[in-house]
Computed example of a mutant assay.
Amino acid sequence: MQKRAFVLGASGQVGAAVVNTLVEYGWQVTAGGRRLREWTDGVRGVQVDRNDDASLTTALGDGHDVFVDCVAYTEQHGRQLAGLTDRVGSAVVLSSFSVYADGNGHTLDESTGLDDFPSMPVPIPESQQTVPPGPDTYSTRKVALENVLLNSSLPVTVLRPGAIAGPGSVLPREWYFVRRALDRRPVQILGYRGASLFHTTTTANLAELVRLAAERPGSRVLNAGDPDPLTVRQIATAINDMLEHRPEEVLLPDLGPDGIGETPWSVPRPYRLDLTAAERLLGYRPVTGYQAALPALVDWLVAAAGRQDWQMAFPRFARVYGSSAFNYAAEDAWLAARSGRHPGR
C-alpha cells in the first residue's frame, strides 16, 4: 500500500524539496501551506494555518503515515504536533544547528564577536549541550520544541540543519557574493582570512534525510549537513567563477571597522556538524555537494533579482543584513585610508 506523507510548510524552499523527493520515491503527498500552489501528479495541495488547530486537523483528514513539519518554531507547535498521535504514525521536524552551546554557555544567537563566540568541538556531535529551553531566542524556542516532541509518545526525528541553501530561499546568503559579482565589485574583502567554515545544508540533502527518517521511524536527534562544507573563500571563488568575475582579494586577520569583511558565513571559529549518526542510523548518503548545487542556486538568484529590486526579491536578506552588506562607499574609504589608493586602480 502506498505510504502517505503530510508536509507542512510545503510552499517554502525546504518543503518543496521534501515534497518532490517523497513523490520521487513513491509516497502519496499532501502539501500543506498558507498559500496554494500547483503541484505535480501525486501531490494534493491544501491551504492550512498551522496556528489554527482545527485547520490542521481538517487538512490531515483521516491520517498519514508521516508528518513532516518544516515550520515548527515553538513549544506550542511541539504540543500541537504531539497531540496528533491518532492521525500520524511518526513525524520529522526541522530544528537548527544554532541550538548548540559551548561549555561556557556561548551560543550563535548571542555572540557578538570573538570573545563570546562558541568554541565547539570540530565536528559538533548531537550530544553537544544545547541552550536551555525557553521563549527568549530563536534557539531557546527550538530547544523547547525539541523537548516536547522527544518526550512525547509520537516517534519523532528532529533534524538540525546548518545554513540552508537552495532555490526559493527567503534568506539566500549567496546573494552577498552574487550581487557583488553582478556589480563587478573590483575588491573582495574577507574577514578571518576567508577561512570561516559555517556548515551548509542544501535543500536536496535535507530532503533526502527527511525521506530516510520517514522510512525508518524513530525518536532521535540528527545533524543535517552537506559533505565537505566550503570555507567562505571557497564559496566566494566558486560563485565568482560562475559569473566570470575576478576581484582583487583582501584577506583580513579578523574584521575591519563596522564589520568590513563580514559575510553571512563569517565566524571566528569553525562551526561544523558531525554527520556520522545520520550515516549510521539512517544510511544517509548526500545526494549532492554544496558546490555542485551552487549553479542552480546562482541561476535562480540572478533571475529573481532581475525581475524586481533585490530588496523586494529577498526581503529577509535585506532585513537581516541590510545595506551594510553592500556598503561599497565605506569599504572604499577604508581601503583608501589603508593603502593610499582607490580600490581597483
Rank of each mutant, 00 (worst) to 15 (best):
Q2A: 14
R4C: 07
A10M: 03
S11D: 12
G12Q: 09
V14F: 03
V18I: 12
N20V: 05
T21R: 15
V23Q: 04
V23I: 11
E24W: 13
A31M: 04
G32N: 01
R34N: 07
R35F: 08
L36Y: 03
R37M: 11
R37T: 11
W39D: 05
T40S: 15
G45N: 09
G45A: 13
V46Q: 10
Q47W: 08
D49G: 09
D52S: 09
T57H: 14
A59N: 03
G63V: 00
D69I: 00
V71S: 11
H77M: 01
Q80K: 10
T85C: 00
D86H: 03
D86R: 01
V88R: 03
V92N: 02
V93R: 00
H106D: 07
H106C: 13
S111L: 07
D115E: 15
P121A: 10
V122W: 09
E126I: 05
Q128R: 11
T130L: 02
P133M: 06
G134M: 03
D136K: 13
T137H: 06
R141C: 12
V143E: 02
V143S: 01
E146K: 04
N147T: 15
L150Y: 10
N151G: 11
L154G: 03
V156P: 01
G162R: 02
G162C: 04
A163I: 14
A165Y: 15
P167Q: 11
S169Q: 10
V170L: 13
P172G: 07
R173F: 15
E174S: 09
W175T: 02
Y176G: 06
R180D: 05
R184N: 10
R184T: 04
P186Y: 02
P186F: 00
V187H: 06
I189Y: 14
I189K: 15
A195W: 08
T200A: 10
T200Q: 15
T201P: 00
T202K: 08
N205A: 09
L209P: 01
L212V: 08
G218A: 12
V221T: 13
L222A: 04
A224L: 10
G225Y: 12
D228P: 04
T231H: 06
V232N: 04
T237I: 05
A238Y: 05
N240I: 00
D241F: 00
M242W: 09
L243T: 02
E244A: 15
E244H: 14
V250M: 13
V250H: 10
L252H: 07
L255F: 03
G259C: 04
I260W: 09
P264A: 08
W265C: 05
R269Y: 08
Y271N: 05
T276L: 11
A277P: 04
L282K: 07
V287G: 13
T288Q: 03
G289T: 15
G289P: 04
Q291W: 04
A292R: 14
P295M: 05
P295R: 02
A296T: 12
D299V: 03
A303R: 15
G306P: 01
Q311D: 06
A313Q: 03
F314I: 09
F314H: 02
R319C: 06
V320A: 09
V320Q: 09
S323F: 08
A329V: 12
A330S: 14
E331S: 06
A333K: 08
R338K: 14
R341F: 14
